[in-house]
């Protein structure tokens, strides 16, 4: 019994360990279109990138959630974006009015914010730009690749120089 408890503790500590970065997270990634799994932007002049932190372990699907998570909701023609940018810090926003297999296209970015949890939360939300623009340069429905650039719009947008090149998931 003690051995099982020890193994469980070791497994939990393994998954909660923060990884060192293998790519410098203070350099914005190149704007590519190959599904390279990159994400980066400037917020208030500071570089934020994805891929540095491991996300939570989903016991239902028995897999680690990707640090850069793009999920496409076909029924709503929108993409929900969640990127882990720090310990207890997620950058989230949604992309609306996506037309399948059309490139390039300009879509709407909504409700950019920092949240402390992977799942939706009501506490600790730090709002960023409520509206923005996403310029999609690659959208491949068969390979599930989406690439593009994004920025906030308005009087003093906080998000600038955003770019992503990822393989997205789908949901109904």
């Amino acid at each position: 019994m003690k051995k099982i408890g020890l193994i469980i503790c070791v497994l939990i500590s393994f998954y909660s360990c923060r990884k060192n970065s293998f790519v410098d997270p203070t350099i914005l990634p190149e704007a590519t279109t190959s599904g390279a799994g990159t994400f980066g932007c400037l917020i208030d002049g500071w570089v934020y990138t994805g891929g540095r932190y491991s996300d939570y372990w989903d016991w239902v699907s028995a897999e680690e959630q990707p640090s850069i998570n793009f999920c496409y909701y076909k029924a709503k023609d929108s993409m929900v974006v969640r990127v882990k940018t720090g310990e207890g810090e997620y950058l989230k926003f949604s992309i609306h009015n996506i037309v399948s297999n059309l490139k390039p296209q300009t879509c709407q970015l909504r409700h950019a914010r920092f949240e402390p949890n992977a799942q939706a939360s009501t506490d600790g939300i730090i709002p960023l730009d409520s509206l923005g623009e996403v310029y999609i340069t690659e959208l491949n429905d068969s390979l599930h690749i989406i690439s593009g650039t994004f920025r906030g719009i308005g009087t003093n947008p906080r998000i600038k120089e955003g770019r992503f090149d990822v393989v997205y998931r789908t949901a109904q």
Binding site: N20, S21, V23, D24, P25, T26, V47
Partner: peptide, 15 residues
Amino acid sequence: KTNVNYHSENILVRY
């Protein structure tokens, strides 16, 4: 490896 000091944080980057 390098140590990157940025935005009040020290980040260890391994190559």
